[in-house]
Amino acid sequence: MCKNALTEEKFRELDAYVASLPERKGALIAVLHKAQEIFGYLPEEVQLHVARLLDLPAANVYGVVSFYSFFAEEPRGDHVINVCMGTACFVRGAEIILKELEADLGIKAGQTTPDGLFSIDALRCVGACGLAPVVMVDGKVYGRVKPGEISSIIKEFMEV
């Protein structure tokens, strides 16, 4: 079954979550977090559903979704590669790592490879400055990454 299929079941899970909320006032962001957790991202269909659940104008929901960088409107790749662009990583060469990664995968930060395998995100500080520059793939942290090491990191995930 396709991972991002917008199944009935997922909508029901979201409905149940909203029903369980003690208060709907101000709950939009929490509901969007839940929706993203369930669906993986927030396509229009899901945003509209959230708008109806909370009785909010769709524009309101969209305005919020588009404001926060945590919310994705496009499906993410199977593996999300986060390059930390915190200052500590920046001064230790994170930019070069990011460029190399972009060149390797042929996509820009914020995009997903056509095969849906990888997404790249530039992240603001993982907080592992001692390990700068840091790359995180699906939550696994690679510290003190040197140019040239990127390809082997990617390979690890291609084989899985």
Partner: peptide, 8 residues
């Protein structure tokens, strides 16, 4: 607890 969503 309330969650932020990525806005400095």
């Amino acid at each position: 607890i309330k969650y932020g969503a990525g806005a400095f």
